[in-house]
Amino acid sequence: MGSEDGTDQVTSSILGARPRSSSLGDEEALGGGLPANWTLEEFQKRVRGILDSYLLSGEVEEAVRSFQDFAVREASGFLDEVAVCALRTALEQTDQQRSRIAELLRRLHEENILDQASLARGFAKLVCTWEDLVVDCGSKSSVYLVDMLLSCMRGNCVVRAFLMRLPEGLVMAVLREGSEDEDKTELQEVARKLQQFKRGIQ
């Protein structure tokens, strides 16, 4: 696994060191933020069950109602962990299924079930483990993660300033692996600014 330097070190200090990833995300981040009556496995199973039903049916409003009920009854105060599970699941899906999960995240934000802070924390936890995700899910997982982030930004679910918190290594990996033309210019500008910042602190 590559070492961090320059901007990557600054980003790590903001987001935290990379803990070990589990099948649905960052084990320490997930396990440490759960209600006392939940185990990590139970939480993952509950969220994954709602997501699987949604991906099969395509009924976004039903999924929104299910997550709203889950949030009110069982997961209030731990919604960033829902975001982690949803994003980690999306990385394992087809393009169409990832688009559906992105749509669901936007709807959850519109309905005030997931706020910007919860989504940002969810993305941050996966950003911290992006190199592990590449090992677990393949090199394209970095592209998928950033694509999901940009989709949420276009839906005003995450502030665009979050791009400048991305590790330079992640941005460069996405540019190498290929991204949509509409995203490439923006990511190239982010890479330029990150490199400029790194030169400024050397």
Rank of each mutant, 00 (worst) to 15 (best):
M1R: 06
M1A: 11
M1Y: 07
E4S: 15
D5Y: 10
D5W: 13
S13T: 05
I14Y: 06
A17G: 10
P19G: 04
S21L: 15
S22P: 05
S22L: 10
S23T: 11
S23G: 08
G33S: 08
N37F: 15
W38K: 04
T39D: 04
L40T: 04
E41S: 14
E42H: 04
K45M: 14
K45C: 10
K45V: 09
V47S: 09
I50W: 03
I50S: 06
L51I: 10
D52P: 05
S53R: 15
Y54S: 01
S57V: 03
G58D: 07
V60C: 14
E61L: 04
E62F: 04
A63S: 05
R65M: 05
D69P: 02
A71N: 10
R73Q: 14
R73C: 12
F78A: 14
L79G: 00
L79W: 02
D80H: 15
E81N: 11
A83I: 05
A86R: 00
T89G: 06
A90T: 00
L91Q: 10
L91P: 05
T94A: 08
Q97H: 15
S99F: 03
S99A: 13
S99H: 10
R100A: 12
R100W: 13
A102T: 01
E103A: 11
E103P: 02
L104R: 02
L105D: 00
L105V: 02
L105C: 01
L108N: 01
L108H: 01
I113N: 06
L114N: 03
D115P: 03
S118Y: 07
F123M: 09
K125W: 03
K125V: 04
C128I: 13
W130G: 00
E131D: 14
D132F: 04
L133E: 01
D136C: 11
K140N: 15
S141A: 10
V143W: 00
V143C: 00
V143D: 00
Y144W: 14
D147N: 12
C152P: 00
R154M: 07
V158F: 02
R160S: 11
A161Q: 15
A161M: 09
M164R: 05
M164D: 13
M164V: 07
P167T: 05
G169E: 13
L170Y: 09
V171E: 01
A173F: 09
V174A: 12
R176Q: 15
G178H: 04
E180S: 09
E182D: 10
E182T: 08
E182P: 02
E186T: 15
E186Q: 14
A191E: 06
A191S: 07
R192Y: 12
R192T: 08
K193P: 00
K193M: 09
K193N: 08
L194E: 01
Q195E: 14
F197V: 08
R199V: 11
G200C: 11
I201N: 08
